[in-house]
Write a protein that binds this DNA or RNA. Structure first.
Length: 854
RNA sequence: GCGCGCUUGGUGGAAUGGUAGACACAGGGGACUUAAAAUCCCCAUCCUUCGGGAGUGUGGGUUCGAGUCCCACAGCGCGCACCA
């Protein structure tokens, strides 16, 4: 009697059995023996308390890799933990009056229960949350070592300050120049903050990113662009007018175009340049001008882009190469303080920003690069700068040189004059990590009036967050806590104050992969690292991955990680999002998928019967209400079906659209799979026979194993799914004709093992039904028999002039001449080549025959 | 603006330079059934005078042969964005 597979009962049963058998615990290097290691890691989640479909897809993918590797004989580390510090916990504290810690750990419990239902092959023995004192205490120790090594420093820096909430805002929390929560106009404030010296590794981070062959090209490019290396010249222009105080030596600029120095017509300073600030002290006009620049600067990029603002300081400098030539010094809003030296020389003829500025303020324009084929007497630049190739002219000793030669020559000359040197500049800036927040890792520092900045002794770590905090007023609870910040100086013993800033939560996620490998054992860390396969969202392409690459280097250099390359993630895969159609009611409200239904061709709202307008397919989000709750799906169809669906329809790197019909299709297929095993379950087990029907089944099975293996290795899970579909069709066909029982048993045994990475619970049930030994989750990957995967004859298409006209089947290894003869004799072919001259015949063995006729 | 990527049936997509559209979803037809559900099987790019012809965003090119390689263009998406 055929039975139905009951996912609810089966999934729970198998999960409990796995847990009891402790199947997924990573072996120690010693236990593993000769087995190679595989560290499979998915980006750990923020414990929001609710699992979403994006998580399901992310972790399903990682689990496919982990289970496949395990079956292939690897010692697999597949851990899980929680990225648990951050703003949402503080927001919850303010809104619901619940302590961030309590809220967070409750969420972790809730989410862990949801995770458990997915049947992931995780090693929970290594679980931690970044808000555990053991974790952030270890992080504080790393901080102190890095500080000691000179990788951390303090400096004053501008931050977005919300004057109502009394807090610092991240850039993404500033919307149209206003705080996202308070709505107050955001101010730029100078605060002394802690910085990680990521720029120290800029060159290495750039160089090594190109070698990460198992990373997506796209991510590597984004990182390279973010680091933004450019070669150029840093030089100083000496004063023509009287030198202002503190700037006796002149004005330092950076340029990538020293070849255009003869075309210089002005110097431009950033509104935030120290000289500008100094000059503004005695000039109301300049003060006003700076204010104007700051206003425009916040957000409205369009406006900012349109208008070039300038202020003539009246100062002048000498041109380094042309005696008697002077350049005016302006302040310009388009010059950024954060890049180079915060000052430039303007060469309007060959820089678009400079030409716009020069035309607006009537500054001179001298072309010095002659485009190929242009006439030197008549070539002019109007409103469009020329930035292409050419030869240098109007440029004294540089005349006639190409751009690259001219750059080199100009740099040498400047160096010879002692005015500057060739340098490399990076767009990358040091990483500011101070956050004026409670729910983060406390910075282990004490400020003492006599001793200054004093590190907390390692024996006093962790510096714990106090529990008794309130969120009823704005600002940092650590700062206003009655006792917490008041401590004695570790050095002199006098009363001092704790640092009340906490670390950016990106710090927490920059080294968790090393902590998973081992809390403190360097050898074990060295054994597991680097992560062999990292899986996560593309949204972390720059910051998280760059910070992690920095941290692994820093940890290496302070002796906390034995990782010569410094690269923490050898392989990276970025998966696409889960999307869903959106729905709007007649009154314009977003509706959840569960609130609407399809009647014929039109969507209606279940509750009201009102007409629903389906909208674009977008990433599942609360605001658009186009979410599907994994719990509900698991309750209805089981976790295997949810896993199968998110892996089946689209290539893993692309978005997948969640559809009800698609899930139902996956559920149907799960039953179909079960029926393959169920039909065999009551039969006598037999070895495969060698009749034609058996051979057909066996070939399909052995070929499928190879195809699925390859597809998983290449992250083409959708192709693996397709192969399984085809395979099952063959098995079902044999089943309906009652043939090839032995071959079907063999195929089913292989199928159960190939299914395990995708639908682990179902695979266990199937394995059990056909009397498999132990857990299929612990069974080795099936080995395909080469004799069955390689055919003795091949079908080849026959083309005439590149058009397919027929096909022939010939023995494998047949000579080209014989193949050619068969092809020429094919009736469909004869009618096309009759009466024509055959110019040549191309035979690609095993693939195709192409007959070329005149 | 600069950089990167993508564009294949009604839909998601498959295809080491070698039979385009595997596999799935939706659709159509049939079988089983008193009926339904479930299940199983078949059809399905377009045009056609049924011989064939056209066809992978558009236009060129390389090749015996191009979805795949090269050039140009268009559309869409992503990233960066006054980076000197």
């Amino acid at each position: 009697m055929a039975t139905r597979y009951d996912p609810q009962a089966a999934e729970q049963k198998w999960r409990e059995a796995w847990k009891k058998a402790d199947l997924f615990r990573a072996k120690s290097p010693k236990e593993a023996g000769d087995a190679p290691k595989a560290y499979v890691l998915e980006m750990f989640p923020y414990p929001s308390g609710r699992l979403h479909m994006g998580h399901v897809r992310n972790y399903a993918m990682g689990d496919v890799v982990a289970r496949h590797k395990r079956a292939k004989g690897y010692n697999v580390l597949h851990p899980m933990g929680w990225d648990a510090f951050g703003m949402p916990a503080e927001n919850a504290a303010m809104e619901k009056n619940v302590h961030p810690g309590k809220w967070t750990y409750q969420n972790i419990d809730a989410m862990k229960a949801q995770f458990a239902k997915l049947g992931l092959s995780l090693d929970w023995s290594r679980e931690f949350a970044t808000c555990d004192p053991e974790y952030y205490g270890a992080q504080q120790a790393l901080f102190l070592k890095m500080l000691d090594k000179g990788l951390i420093y303090r400096k004053a820096s501008k931050v977005n300050w919300d004057p109502v909430d009394n807090t610092v805002l991240a850039n993404e929390q500033v919307i149209d120049g206003r705080g996202w929560r308070s709505g107050a106009l955001v101010e730029q404030r100078e605060l002394t903050q802690w910085f990680f010296k990521i720029t120290e590794y800029a060159e290495d981070l750039l160089e090594e990113v190109h070698k990460l062959e198992r990373w997506p090209e796209k991510v590597r490019t984004m990182q390279a662009n973010w680091i933004g290396r450019s070669e150029g010249l840093q030089m100083r222009f000496e004063w023509d007018s009287a030198a202002p105080a503190n700037f006796d030596d002149g004005i330092e600029i950076f340029t990538t175009r020293p070849d255009t120095l003869f075309g210089a017509s002005f110097i431009a300073l950033s509104p935030d340049h120290p000289l500008t600030i100094q000059l503004a002290e005695n000039s109301e006009q300049l003060k006003a001008f700076r204010g104007k620049c700051a206003q425009v600067g916040t957000s409205e990029e369009a406006i900012e882009k349109a208008e070039k603002l300038g202020f003539d300081t009246g100062l002048t400098v000498k041109h380094p190469f042309v005696d008697g030539k002077t350049l005016p010094v302006w302040v310009a809003n388009f010059v950024l303080m954060g890049y180079g030296t915060g000052a430039i020389f303007g060469c309007p003829a060959h820089d678009q920003r400079d030409i716009e500025f020069a035309r607006k303020f009537g500054l001179s324009v001298t072309p010095v690069v002659l485009p190929p084929g242009a006439d030197r007497a008549s070539f002019t630049v109007e409103d469009e700068a020329y930035t292409g190739p050419g030869s240098i002219f109007n440029s004294g000793f540089l005349d006639g040189l190409g751009i690259d030669d001219a750059k080199r020559t100009a740099i040498e000359r400047i160096e010879g004059m002692g005015l500057g040197a060739g340098t490399v500049n990076y767009r990358l800036r040091d990483w500011g990590v101070s956050r004026q927040r409670y729910w983060g890792c406390p910075i282990p520092i004490v400020h003492c009036d006599s001793c200054g900045v004093v590190p907390v002794p390692e024996s006093d770590l962790p510096v714990r967050l106090p529990d008794d905090v309130t969120f009823d007023q704005p600002g940092n609870p650590l700062d206003r806590h009655a006792t917490w910040k008041h401590v004695d100086c570790p050095k002199c013993g006098k009363p001092a104050r704790r640092e009340t800033d906490t670390l950016d939560t990106f710090v927490d996620s920059s080294w968790y992969y090393a902590r998973f490998a081992s809390p403190d054992d360097l050898e074990e860390r060295a054994y597991w690292l680097p992560v062999d396969q990292y899986v996560g969202g593309i949204e972390h392409a720059v910051l998280h991955l760059l910070y992690s690459r920095f941290f692994s280097r820093a940890m290496r250099d302070i002796g906390e990680l034995d990782l010569p390359s410094g690269e923490p993630f050898a392989g990276l895969f970025t998966q696409g999002m889960v999307t869903h159609e959106t729905y709007k009611s007649a009154s314009g409200q977003w509706l959840q998928p569960s609130e609407v239904e399809l009647e014929g061709d039109t969507w209606i709202e279940k509750a009201t019967g009102g007409l629903v307008t389906p909208g674009p397919i977008e990433k599942m989000s609360k605001s658009k209400k186009n979410t599907v709750d994994p719990d509900a799906i698991i309750a209805e169809f089981g976790a295997d079906v949810a896993r199968w669906f998110v892996l089946s329809d689209s290539p893993p790197e692309r978005d997948v659209e969640w559809t009800q019909a698609g899930v139902e299709g996956s559920a149907r297929f799960a039953q179909r799979l079960w029926s393959v095993f169920d039909a065999l379950g009551d039969m006598e087990k037999a070895d495969p026979a060698d009749d034609a029907a058996s051979l057909t089944v066996r070939k399909a099975s052995h070929k499928a194993v190879v195809a699925i293996d390859k597809a998983i290795e290449e992250f083409r899970f959708n192709s693996a799914v397709a192969s399984i579909h085809e395979w099952v069709s063959v098995l079902k066909k044999a089943e309906s004709s009652g043939e090839a029982v032995g071959a079907r048993f063999e195929g089913a045994s292989m199928l159960a093992r190939c299914l395990t990475p995708f639908m682990p619970h179902l695979a266990e049930a199937c394995w059990e039904r056909i009397g498999g030994d132990g857990f299929v989750s612990a069974a080795p990957w099936p080995v395909a028999d080469k004799a069955l995967t390689e055919d003795v004859s091949v079908t080849m298409a026959v083309q005439v002039n590149g058009k397919r006209r027929g096909e022939i089947t010939v023995p494998k290894g047949e000579t080209n001449e014989a193949v050619e003869a068969v092809a020429h004799a094919l009736p469909e072919v004869v009618s096309f080549i009759e009466g024509k001259t055959v110019k040549k015949t191309i035979v690609v063995p095993g693939r195709i025959v192409n007959i070329v006729v005149a």
